[in-house]
């Protein structure tokens, strides 16, 4: 009770930091439980009460532009067994230009079936408020291509982008394999057509059975797979013409302490694509973070 009183009476910033520190200490680490994908979503939801902190970064260079790095800081929370909510903070840095935050996203995923089936559908709805300089490349839709990455960030920063993105996520787990398919529809809330895209991926761990000892580099902790993703044009010009597509092998390593690392080199498949993108990320999951926070107020 003393703690709760302190949090309610302390200055807001001190209370906020105290709350976060205590909750982080009270929560326990857990396996991030994620497949090694960067663009494709699987049907796996965040476990109820767990908080995952992750980064997804990408770096690349297009012929007419400077080398860039985009990153998204991700906070994913399992609100219920069927609802996962996630907040992203995006930023970018471009060589010989500048580095700044480019906006935020708020996404929600809803699992449609309570139990696991052969194919498991999940609905995804995201609101994003970013600007034209965003380089996080969390999805490829419409006619997104290397021209978007070549433009100067100073001009892009002045271009506000407010979008609603929806996805139908389908996922299956079979004999250690995960196969996931995403169908994407995105609408800029300004006067712009609907844009479409897709992402498909498959992966599996290198060992099916676990070892009894606590190990970091054993095969059960390594997942390998591949992603294929790209744009499908707009509702006015639907199809593959002028769209960009990428094929990306991907690998993840889950350390015994709960931290997971992922890396994925992506290769552009069409003339509109960037030739090469390197994605990398790290994630850490705090089990029962929600319960740790709620305990502070009892």
């Amino acid at each position: 009770m003393k703690l709760a009183r302190f949090i309610f009476t302390a200055p807001p910033r001190a209370a906020g930091w105290s709350l976060l520190t205590i909750a982080l200490a009270a929560a326990t680490d857990a396996r991030a439980g994620e497949w090694p994908y960067f663009v494709t979503y699987s049907h796996q939801m965040e476990e109820p009460g767990n908080l995952e902190i992750a980064t997804r970064s990408v770096t690349g260079k297009v012929p007419d532009g400077n080398r860039f790095a985009g990153t998204a800081l991700e906070l994913e929370y399992g609100a219920t067994g069927w609802w996962t909510t996630e907040f992203y903070l995006d930023g970018q840095a471009t060589s010989r230009e500048s580095a700044f935050l480019t906006g935020y996203r708020w996404e929600n995923r809803f699992r449609l079936f309570s139990r696991e089936h052969w194919i498991n559908p999940v609905l995804y709805v995201e609101y994003e408020r970013i600007n034209g300089a965003d380089r996080s490349l969390l999805e490829v839709v419409g006619h997104d291509g290397r021209e978007d990455l070549a433009g100067g960030t100073a001009e892009g920063r002045l271009e506000p982008v407010r979008e609603i993105e929806t996805k139908l996520i389908l996922g299956s787990n079979f004999k250690g394999w995960n196969v996931s398919e995403n169908f994407i529809a995105e609408k800029n809330l300004a006067h712009a057509p609907f844009e479409f895209g897709y992402a498909v991926a498959a992966s599996r761990p290198l060992a099916m059975a676990a070892r009894a000892d606590r190990c970091n580099f054993c095969l059960e902790n390594i997942d390998v797979g591949a992603e294929l993703y790209g744009g499908l044009g707009t509702h006015e010009a639907f199809g593959l013409r002028g769209t960009s597509h990428y094929l990306a092998p991907t690998v993840s390593l889950q350390l015994a302490g709960g931290t997971a690392f992922r890396v994925s080199p992506g290769f552009g498949l069409t003339g509109s694509s960037a030739r090469f993108l390197l994605r990398f990320g790290v994630s850490y999951e705090l089990a029962q973070f929600g319960r740790a926070v709620s305990r502070l107020f009892r």
């Binding site: 439980g33 497949w35 699987s42 796996q44 939801m45 476990e47 109820p48 219920t80 067994g81 069927w82 699992r111 079936f113 309570s114 139990r115 696991e116 787990n173 004999k175 250690g176 995960n178 599996r204 761990p205 099916m208 059975a209 676990a210 059960e220």
Partner: peptide, 19 residues
Amino acid sequence: RTGSSRRGMPSFSHLPEPQ
């Protein structure tokens, strides 16, 4: 394997069957 998100039990189908 099947879980029940309605009952708060997540599916662990992401773990291979031997695990």
